[in-house]
Simulated scan of single mutants.
Amino acid sequence: MSGGGPHEARLLPWSTPEGKPCYLDSDGSGYISRVADTIESVQLGLAGDLLDHADELLAEDEVPPDQLRQTLAQVTEALRNVHRIAQSRGARLPLDPDGYA
């Protein structure tokens, strides 16, 4: 995706069962776009909550390794979701005449 504006195909916040990305080619006003917006909002909220939890763990003197491992797995998933949202939104930014968003 090169960032061509509001009618650029949108990277959706979910994948196919095979793990391939899903795209939506629309003007952004339909039902699927609203569902994607809602899912992205939930994902961003969960990422924020998870950052707070990770900060709490980092402030503790001793944390069990299994709790650290579980939190790291959750942080990795949240970061993957946030990265996908950033890619999706960045690809839909209008480019200025010099080719920058």
Results as ranks from 00 to 15, higher is better:
91 A>T: 10
10 R>E: 06
83 H>W: 10
56 E>T: 10
60 E>G: 02
28 G>Y: 09
24 L>T: 01
66 D>A: 13
52 D>T: 13
41 S>R: 15
65 P>T: 13
29 S>D: 07
16 T>G: 01
30 G>E: 11
63 V>T: 12
32 I>A: 08
94 P>Q: 08
39 I>Q: 06
67 Q>C: 08
68 L>H: 08
86 A>L: 14
84 R>S: 12
55 D>K: 09
24 L>E: 03
27 D>L: 04
33 S>N: 11
81 N>L: 06
63 V>Q: 06
59 A>L: 12
69 R>S: 13
73 A>S: 09
91 A>F: 07
53 H>Q: 10
87 Q>S: 09
52 D>R: 09
29 S>I: 04
34 R>H: 15
54 A>M: 07
20 K>V: 00
75 V>A: 11
33 S>I: 06
45 G>H: 09
46 L>K: 07
31 Y>Q: 08
16 T>C: 02
58 L>R: 14
25 D>G: 03
81 N>F: 06
10 R>W: 10
49 D>L: 14
16 T>Q: 00
14 W>A: 00
23 Y>V: 00
77 E>I: 05
94 P>A: 09
85 I>K: 03
43 Q>R: 06
47 A>S: 11
32 I>L: 14
96 D>I: 14
29 S>Q: 11
85 I>S: 09
73 A>C: 03
20 K>T: 02
85 I>V: 15
64 P>R: 12
54 A>N: 04
88 S>M: 01
13 P>Q: 02
75 V>Y: 03
67 Q>D: 15
63 V>P: 04
26 S>Q: 00
24 L>V: 02
48 G>W: 07
85 I>D: 01
97 P>N: 05
33 S>E: 07
76 T>F: 10
22 C>F: 02
90 G>V: 10
36 A>M: 05
90 G>Y: 10
87 Q>T: 14
86 A>W: 13
53 H>A: 13
58 L>C: 09
88 S>D: 00
67 Q>R: 15
33 S>K: 02
23 Y>F: 13
82 V>M: 02
13 P>E: 01
29 S>E: 09
38 T>Q: 10
52 D>I: 11
45 G>S: 10
31 Y>C: 06
93 L>I: 06
32 I>H: 04
59 A>D: 14
54 A>F: 10
21 P>W: 02
39 I>V: 15
66 D>I: 14
96 D>F: 15
39 I>Y: 05
24 L>S: 00
14 W>H: 05
54 A>S: 09
42 V>T: 10
34 R>S: 14
88 S>F: 02
96 D>V: 14
46 L>E: 10
59 A>H: 13
17 P>N: 05
44 L>A: 11
9 A>Y: 09
73 A>R: 08
78 A>H: 04
27 D>A: 05
35 V>A: 00
97 P>F: 14
74 Q>V: 05
